[in-house]
């Protein structure tokens, strides 16, 4: 039995102005991992390397215990922008894609389309962005994928569509599927992610349990702060006369009631502002 559905070890990819540096993390089976970081931090580069769209400079990637080419049927993919021929209808898309999968379920596909209210007769070019993402989700859910890799599926979606997608992901977890979900909209992950991997400037800053991450820090908002306390703060800044930032939970005692549980977004923002790794 495989414990980790995805294992990335020492992944490097070099460009002139950016590089992925020794990216390593793993996704346990039946869990949802949020892959977070600023725009340009390396989320898409990592995901594209995992999916064989980019050629890594070095490193090892194991998906469902093997190499990508051996397990592609068991992997569902949703990218941030649609990649189907715009002149296809949803029906012609099914005709084109379904023969590649031995486990394709037309019933699941049409059920998903119905649930997502995607018209089968419309041309793909006539679908809204949200509908196109839902269409990619419908394809990913129709061939019995055990692992779903989603690259920024919620960016550009309205809050209702985002909420629906989060619900779908929660349902997938119930059925034992695993999801790697890249986003910079961290509020989407608050409800659904079990694990969080945080990437900054091509380096993994944190990868692990979401609860542990949230419990490891305290958000701090204080009007008058001493230099001594300031030194404890990560990513601190003055905003509207109030000093705000984040402190490691174990050293947040001196802040008293000014230190509260942070949101994932606060952690990402303050970590992005500070070159301090947490492991």
């Amino acid at each position: 039995m495989i414990d980790n559905v995805l294992e990335i070890t020492g992944l490097c990819k070099d460009y002139d102005e950016f590089s992925l540096k020794n990216v390593s993390f793993s996704l346990p089976k039946g869990r949802i991992m949020g892959f977070v970081g600023q725009n340009g931090a390396g989320k898409t580069t990592t995901i594209k390397s995992v999916l064989g769209m980019l050629r890594p400079s070095s490193g090892e990637i194991k998906i469902l215990g093997g190499a990508l080419d051996q397990v592609k049927e068991r992997v569902g993919v949703v990218m941030d922008s649609p990649y189907y021929a715009s002149e296809w209808t949803v029906t012609s898309l099914e005709k084109a894609v379904s023969p590649f999968y031995s486990n394709w379920s037309a019933e699941s596909f049409h059920k998903a389309l119905k649930n997502f209210s995607v018209s089968t007769t419309k041309k793909i070019s006539d679908l809204s962005r949200g509908m196109k993402v839902k269409l990619m989700m419908a394809v990913a859910l129709s061939h019995g994928a055990e692992l779903l890799i989603l690259d920024e599926p919620t960016s550009g979606l309205d809050p209702v569509a985002r909420d629906e997608l989060i619900e779908i992901l929660a349902d997938l977890r119930k059925s034992g599927k695993s999801v790697l979900f890249s986003t910079h909209i961290t509020s989407d992950l608050e409800r659904v992610a079990d694990y969080v991997t945080f990437i900054k400037n091509g380096e993994i800053i944190y990868s692990g349990d979401k609860k542990t991450l949230l419990q490891s820090y305290k958000a701090v908002k204080i009007k008058d702060i001493t230099e001594e306390l300031k030194a404890l703060v990560i990513g601190g800044r003055e905003f509207d006369g109030v000093f705000e930032g984040m402190a490691p939970a174990e050293s947040a005692g001196p802040f008293g009631a000014a230190a509260v549980s942070p949101t994932l977004e606060e952690i990402v923002v303050y970590m992005s502002r500070e070159d301090r790794n947490y492991e």
Partner: peptide, 17 residues
């Protein structure tokens, strides 16, 4: 058509080499 619609990404996602 593949370039216009970024379909190479789709080919990579399909179970083919």
């Amino acid at each position: 058509i593949a370039e216009k619609n970024s379909m190479d990404l789709m080919y990579c996602s399909l179970p083919i080499t």
